[in-house]
Simulated assay, not measured.
Amino acid sequence: MKLHTLSRGARALGLAAAVALLPTITTADSVAVSPTRITVPTKANQTSLTVKAGGREASVVQLRVVAWTPGQDPRQVRATRDVVVSPPVAKLRPRQELTVRVVRTKKRAVRGQECYRVLVDRLPGREQAGQAVKLQVRHSVPLCFNS
């Protein structure tokens, strides 16, 4: 019985030592985007979405729009200038919300449905400066204009 107690104590001590040897882990602050899917009604050429920073540090976000075909892999996209976002880059304080304007600039009328993806990237910040691996968080929001 005493051996079992020592064994459990030794395991706890070993676990504590292993945790102490781990490098310091810094959690990245979060960014939330809403809505998570955008459908623009007939004859409208603009919409908006909201980006909200979480955590304790400022967040830098980069926004852009890419062309996309529904039903395809969301990573299969191509560059486009038919839809733009404003602002394309922003620095958000903790818990700050930003309303992003999304405008279809293409002159030709929509025929059927045109789909894109709004990419919102939270770029690595100061809290990741000393880390060998830096995390970039991406939100990919489907955006479709209907005729």
Rank of each mutant, 00 (worst) to 15 (best):
V141P: 01
V40H: 00
D121Y: 05
H4M: 10
V19I: 09
Q136R: 15
V31C: 06
L123R: 07
R104H: 08
V137Q: 15
V33H: 11
A18R: 13
Q46N: 11
H4T: 13
L3Y: 00
S147N: 03
G54C: 09
L63W: 02
R101S: 15
L21V: 10
T24V: 12
V40S: 04
P94A: 15
V133Y: 08
A132I: 08
R64P: 03
A17Y: 04
R81Q: 15
I38H: 05
L49E: 00
A44V: 09
V66N: 06
T24Q: 09
V51G: 04
L3D: 12
R11S: 05
P88A: 09
T5N: 13
S59V: 13
D82F: 02
V84D: 02
L6S: 06
G9C: 11
T69D: 06
Q128C: 07
L22D: 11
T27C: 07
P88G: 01
V110Q: 09
A109L: 06
S59F: 04
S34H: 09
G125H: 12
P41M: 01
G55I: 05
K91C: 03
G71E: 05
Q96N: 00
R81K: 10
P124T: 08
D29A: 15
V102T: 00
I25Q: 14
L3A: 07
V40A: 04
V66T: 02
V19H: 00
A12P: 07
V110A: 10
Q128H: 03
F145W: 12
G130A: 04
P142I: 07
V84G: 01
C144H: 04
V120R: 02
L6C: 01
K2T: 15
A16M: 10
N146G: 06
S30L: 10
V77S: 11
T50A: 08
G14N: 14
A17N: 08
P74I: 12
R111L: 09
D29E: 15
V141M: 01
L92A: 09
G112C: 06
K43R: 14
R8V: 07
V100D: 04
L135I: 15
V77Y: 04
R81Y: 11
V19Q: 03
Q46P: 03
V66S: 02
R37C: 03
Q62C: 08
S86T: 14
L135N: 12
V120A: 05
E114Y: 11
G9E: 08
L135E: 10
L92Y: 11
R8G: 11
L13G: 13
A17I: 13
P35N: 11
